[in-house]
Structure formats: C-alpha cells, structure tokens
C-alpha cells in the first residue's frame, strides 16, 4: 500500500468505528466516497479548521448527505471537531446525525434530501464572485442523486453563469437503493449529458487509479464549471458489501457484522 492507499484505509476504519458506535449507517455509500474526499481534503481544499467560517475558505458540499460518515471522518481528522464526536454518531446527545447539518463545524450545507447541493453551491460560487473572493466551491453528488430534476435545473444555471469557480464530483458507484443506477434511472450517456449541459467533463476511474483525482483537479477550464465523474465501488474495501444492496442502509448492526467488516478491511490491505 502506498501512502494514499493507507490514508484511505484509515478513513475506512474510522467509518466502521462510527458504524459500530451507532450500530447503523449508510456504510457502502460512505466507503465509495473515501478517495474523493481524501483527494480534496488532503490536496486541494483551502481551509483552516480553527476558523471554519473564514470567508475565504473553499466550500465543499456533500450533496449525497447519506455518505456523511466519510465526511465526518475527514472533518474530525482535520480538527474541525473532536474525534470523540464520531463515537456518538446518531446518538441522542451527539452532534453528528445520519445526514450532515450546518451546525457541525466544517459542514457547509444541510443535506440528505437529495438534489439540493448543487443549487446551494451555485449560490455560494455566485456570492464569491460578487464579493470578489477567490474561493472554490466543490459539490459531491451521487450518481443515483443525478436522477433528481433539480440537479439538472442547477446544471443549466452553472454553465449559464460560466462558473469556473465551481466543481461537481459525481461519486459514480453505480447503485441506487433498488438496483443498478442504469436500470432504475437510465443516466447514460452520463458524461455526454454533463458536457451537453456546458460542463468541462472528465471521467476518472478511482478503482483502477485511486489517486487519479488529485492531479485531474489541477486542470482548470476558464469560463466553465467542471464535472468529474468518479468511478467508484459502493462498499469499497469490504468484499461482502461491494455491490450487495442488502447493505445500502443498516439500522441494527451486531458485533459479528462489525467484526466481519474489520476482517474484510484487513484482508483488502493484504491484497493491496
């Protein structure tokens, strides 16, 4: 394992720890996000965890809010809040719920109802332009989320406004709750759609090349919003979860299941 892979693996362990504390969670949807979030938080986002409301910070909106465990793991790691908060995931007295809320330091927008994040991100990007600030706004969508009409309303507007200070990243893990995204939602030709809506679009395969996004994000396209379609695996790192819809959302995890997750993660470390 190289350092990037080790880093991602540590985040996956944090996600399992969080799921263990609450005995629940959208685990596979968090696991597919890890390479995207590590690429952003470790290499691209400008922020100061001690000043989470710094007006010049880059913004990241996790529009597919159900993947929040991955976001919480990164925010805790970066120091936005104590790691102990993660051990109270979904607890009555906890700060971190099953979907991200703005009152949590580092969380830019309350999400969980799908199809909201891109519009909010456009508002932030336009606000940055009006204020003549140089921050960049990143929005992470799920592929299933892209069957929401509001995503495409917003996509039209992002290119109308020529928002080159805005980047969409689609966590394309290929699955919705009921089945494969292509069967339930018929998104293809997906890259063509984003191109046709005026985005500078690039597909990156994070399964074959986990670090591909780190360099791909360096390429800026003047006058255009960008879209990176990131090929990922739902449940990545835990073999019995990958492509297994039974695991989309669990609300009663037992100790054996948690142990099996850890064992599977360990095995995947051996293979890498």
């Amino acid at each position: 394992m190289n350092s990037f892979a080790r880093r991602c693996q540590a985040v996956r362990h944090d996600i399992v720890d969080m799921a263990e504390s609450a005995k629940r969670g959208h685990i596979p949807s968090a696991l597919s996000l890890v390479e995207i979030l590590v690429s952003l938080y470790d290499y691209h986002l400008h922020f100061d965890a001690n000043q989470p409301l710094d007006p010049d910070r880059d913004r990241l909106i996790l529009s597919k809010g159900h993947g929040c465990m991955a976001l919480y793991a990164l925010l805790a790691d970066k120091g936005f809040f104590p790691k102990a908060w993660c051990q109270a995931f979904c607890a009555f007295e906890g700060m971190l719920g099953g979907h991200p809320e703005e009152r949590v330091p580092g969380v830019e927008a309350t999400t969980g109802s799908l199809g909201h994040g891109l519009a909010i991100g456009i508002g932030m990007a336009l606000a940055g332009r009006m204020q003549k600030r140089n921050f960049h706004t990143y929005i992470i969508l799920g592929d299933g989320e892209c069957t929401e009409g509001s995503v495409w309303e917003s996509a039209l507007a992002a290119s109308k406004h020529k928002l080159d200070n805005l980047t969409v990243l689609v966590d394309f893990n290929g699955w919705m709750s009921f089945g494969p995204t292509q069967e339930v939602g018929n998104l293809e030709p997906f890259e063509h759609k984003w191109n046709a809506f005026g985005f500078a679009t690039q597909t990156v395969d994070l399964n074959k090349e986990p670090e591909a996004l780190v360099s791909a994000l360096n390429v800026k396209v003047p006058g255009k919003p960008r879209c990176f379609i990131c090929k990922t695996i739902k449940g990545k790192g835990i073999d019995f979860m990958e492509g297994n819809l039974d695991w989309h959302h669990k609300s009663k995890l037992d100790a054996d299941e948690i142990a099996a997750m850890r064992q599977s993660l360990k095995r995947s470390e051996g293979h890498a």
Binding site: P55, A109, A119, I120, S150, E153, S154
Partner: peptide, 24 residues
C-alpha cells in the same frame, strides 16, 4: 446583484440559500 433565472424554482431557492450562507 440582479438575477433573473430560468423556470427552475427549486434551483432558485437553493441558489438563494447559498448566497445567504455567504453573507447576502
């Protein structure tokens, strides 16, 4: 500071929210 957006009301509310979160 003058915007007329398309017939995309759901987007418009989110866009306004994003601006409000950024000081407008």
């Amino acid at each position: 500071r003058f915007f007329v957006e398309a017939i995309s009301e759901a987007y418009v509310i989110g866009m306004a929210a994003g601006m409000a979160m950024t000081g407008f």
